[in-house]
Design a protein around this nucleic acid. Sequence first.
RNA 1: GCCUCUGUAGCUCAGCGGACAGAGCACCGGUCUUCUAAACCGAUGGUCGCAGGUUCGAGUCCUGCCAGGGGCGCCA
Length: 585
Amino acid sequence: MRIVRLPRKSALEQLNKTLEAAIESALRTAQHDGDLPQFEIPRIPVSPPKRAGQGDWAYPAMGLARLARKSPLDIARLIVDRLPMLDFAGKTEVAPPGFINCTIADDYLRKQIDAILAAGQSFFRLDIGAGKRAQVEFVSANPSGPITIGHSRNAVVGDAMARLLEAAGYAVQREYYYNNAGNQMIILGKSLQLRTLQELGEDAPLPADHYQGEYLVDIARDLVAERGESLRGENWRFFKDAAEQVMFRWIKRSLAAINIQHDAFFNETSLFESEQIWSVLDAMRENGHVYQAAHWEGADADEIADVRAKGYEPAVWFRSSSFGDEKDRVMVKSDGVPTYTLPDIAYHADKLRRGFDIAVNVLGTDHFSQAAVVEYGIRALGMEPAPIEVIFLQMVRAVRWNEGLGEFEAVKQSKRAGEFDTLDDLVAMTSADAVRYHMLARSPNSQLDFDVDQVVKQSNENPVYYIQNAYVRCAGIFREAAERGICDTDADLSLLGESELRFVRKALEIGNVIEQAVRHYEPQKIAFFAQELAGVFHPIYDEVRVLHSEVPAETAKARLRFYRAAKAIFRYLLDLMGMSAPERM
RNA sequence: GCCUCUGUAGCUCAGCGGACAGAGCACCGGUCUUCUAAACCGAUGGUCGCAGGUUCGAGUCCUGCCAGGGGCGCCA
């Protein structure tokens, strides 16, 4: 009989692999003994069962029935009889219709408590990203206005993804891509100029296509306070730069309020200045994917007639249709100005050249077709787009229940005309933690109605408080314990009961959750998990007392040690979600 | 016209091809001389939108419908 040693890191996923290997080896032994016919053993993963009493892992032997020409129950028994000793495994049972159920050894769970406390925040860190670099590009709003509610979801999801990648072992860079050169920025500058002139007492009406937002009035007022009459002589460029500066300060402050900071800011303009867009275009041309024409090669009669009617001169086209696009795309307009497609391709090519193993891009679904065109462009350059992964976010809106209508309706925060819903408004209405949690706790491809009343409710109706309260309750125990002079040195963890071990068991899933979140780009998984873990915690807190007259001193010590680990675990999860861990509420 | 997402309890949502489909809320009934009850315990509640298919096994995969949301299309 062989002894399979425990992997050094003890995330459940690694135990899964070990158990799977042990089962496979048992099957081989059975084949070797002649109890099972020879067949190639398919990989059937072990998985956590759905209900209690079915152990911690389930292996469905039903999948082998046909190959082995035996009943699933018989196969399961054959495996169990030949299973090597596993020092983390407890009971192993066979259950109809052919499951093998295996539990984690209690002793193993107890050891994890000390292991968690010894390793601290690094306990759950995975090595799947060790030595690899990842980039998350998110928010990427142009500095023409404040961060909106839509951007907020992007910000939260992007930052959570970055934190999860870090937890998985990647070196992560957070990047913000923006364009301050377009027509919109010129209009922004001119809008600020007009607002400034208004502040100086001139009759300078703001055209309808200019920025109506009241925030420009605030900026104008500040400018006037600082520079006064001398502003009359400045042109729109001055105001554009001024507006941009203030906007970026504002954007960064708004993001910082929900615990988000970017490492790098990439300006689209730099791609023009470095002439990268032209070298990218040349490379695509050399590869034969670019042509000049008045209309695209596959245009039908209607399109050609339309082009003639508009009198377009020849433009530079990218033959994206040869990569699967429904039509070709213009890269450089007939007036010589590139469309947004060219810099987008150049930017992503630049990103790939910087050598990231993973480059996550968080985008709204309005970028769906554009993202595909960028991918075709990368292929046209002869580059491999595989490292680029896009998380598409569906719409988000802030809503409030309308009792009269009997339905949710969108919150129109605009106290002042022209102002839209901003992240700042949202945080003011709710809280940074509520925004972080609720913006995260939904699949990116589901639409999200952010209920501004629900998210601040202080009950277990609201996961924000429910999760944080688990941490607060732990903290409370330690405050009280310190006052009474009770500590947990030399705690004997064999005094812990079934409930405490149930919590540890659940907590050990964190590694799996992180891995799954990272592999499938589903950062919301961690939010759901945190709520589940809190749901395991609260009944235990109720039942398993530390500082109670009927609890023996040694038991109290052991329990205190348990709560120390629980506290560390909730702290870790809250950090992972960018939320605060309050000591009291 | 094309693309995309969603449809699971009254509501908001989980659910990696596996065992009797889960949680919170709401509703009903309980629990504070014990580390804060912002909590806990219990009960009620389901033809997983519909129809086929693949599979030993489908809420999960495939196809087609139905319903609802969002986007793109026009050299922006």
